[in-house]
Amino acid sequence: MSLSVLFFLLVGAVCLAAAFGVVVSRQPVHSALFLLVNFASLAVLYVTLEAQFLAAAQVIIYAGGIVILILFVIMLIGGETNDFSAAQRTWSRIVGLGLGLILLVGLGYSALQKLLPLPADPGAALQGGAPKTVGLELFTNYILPFELVGILLLVALIGALVMGRQPEGAGEGIAAVKASDR
């Protein structure tokens, strides 16, 4: 077994263990931290797949932005729920596990059905997925999707602001701030 396969197995095992941790943790905070480990190990895998720019973007956007946002919300609304309440039917968990297993078998079967040959030489076309290569492609052939993504982010920002705003005349909030509002 070559060193690179060993490295892949190690990082992949960390990634998968973190994924399981997200699902089975009782505390949402622990889930969020496991999610951080999952994202970071995926970024390592991106580097081995000649996608350096995306590895950096993964760390910045997911590990740096999304996980922090989720942690903020957990601390804001507590996130404590009784996941094992009596209201939950006992069979729903078994059905969920069974459906997940069926999905895994289906996906694994279709992935293993035809083992892909080793790629010829990705270095020539991808050039390690360096920012320059990706940027040239993005700003020439894919300039319209790029602009549309910018509009989408603006719309999402405004939507999040509108939905997250305190309703008019809500009883909560700091008294001094409310007084200055009037």
Partner: peptide, 16 residues
């Protein structure tokens, strides 16, 4: 595929 199936199972099983 393993990570995707884990996530899908989590969506089905968890209530939070």
């Amino acid at each position: 595929a393993l990570i995707f199936a884990t996530g899908a199972t989590g969506v089905l099983v968890r209530r939070n």
